[in-house]
Design a protein around this nucleic acid. Structure first.
Lengths: 134, 134
DNA sequence: GTACAACCTCTAGCGACTAGAGGTTCAAGG
DNA sequence: CCTTGAACCTCTAGTCGCTAGAGGTTGTAC
């Protein structure tokens, strides 16, 4: 049994154009084609797409996923590299959380100072004019 | 006194090509030019650029900044719209923090389960294969 | 007058898709 | 067998907020 691209899409939750995009950037090798040159996917392709989707859900970028996919096909190698990629991504996520949290504090301060008057006395506008965050 | 684009850049911390970009997207109206058609900025332009920079530092997107700039030139209007824009941005920031925090928990769980063995028993790879976050 | 930094415009690239045009193939029903 | 229409195909361009580079011009200091 094989899948058309639409079935693959429904099976994985990845949109049809995105599947083609993944093929284009080399995450997925070109599948076999029907006589009329339409893509036909095998269960292994579906598994690979699911892997990609889960990794994207976890925020890994395409380059990392490419590497993780390669590593996952070398079961005997040490998983150190997997660990490195994951930790690097984790610290990236933590850095972004920190940045956004600082922003949040600043924005909260601004909206809390708002007295709902006229623009000329608007504390939000003043905050942006005077200094700004980060 | 007026400023060349390089001076404007140093005065505001916005890179030269970015200043031209802001002009292109209509955040900044085209300045006067020298005889040789080079841009000459006035102090009011510098103030506007500083406003833009601070707003960008606070994470506002270009469209929002355009609106905030327009509003800031209408001192008699109510600042309700400013409040709306700011609160909308704030909740966007909070949404992103929540997403990233969930991601962080998942990634932490994954790296903590890592036993530094071989790929075939790698818990990180397994996590991605099995389910994935979000 | 000449050197050279600073400026100019224009195009293309980043990441990860998404949208649309314009054409072809597949599967089901008559 | 034939037609309908959904699903498929390729290709290009757009999103966002810049950034980089090519190739040419202007401003300023000596």
């Amino acid at each position: 049994m094989n899948y058309g691209i639409g079935e693959a899409s429904r099976a994985t939750g990845i949109k049809v154009p995105t599947i083609r995009y993944y093929e284009g950037v080399g995450l997925l090798s070109p599948p076999t084609r029907s006589e009329g040159k339409q893509r036909r996917y095998q269960p292994a392709d579906i598994a690979r797409l699911n892997f990609i989707r889960h990794a994207r859900d976890l925020g890994f970028e395409i380059g990392d996923i490419r590497e993780l996919l390669t590593l996952s096909t070398r079961p005997d190698q040490s998983c150190d590299q997997v660990d490195v990629i994951t930790r690097r991504h984790l610290s990236d996520v933590e850095r972004r959380i920190a940045q956004l949290s600082a922003l949040r504090v600043e924005l909260l301060r601004m909206v809390n100072e708002c007295t709902h008057g006229r623009i000329y006395e608007c504390r939000v506008i003043e905050s942006i004019q005077e200094a700004g965050g980060a």
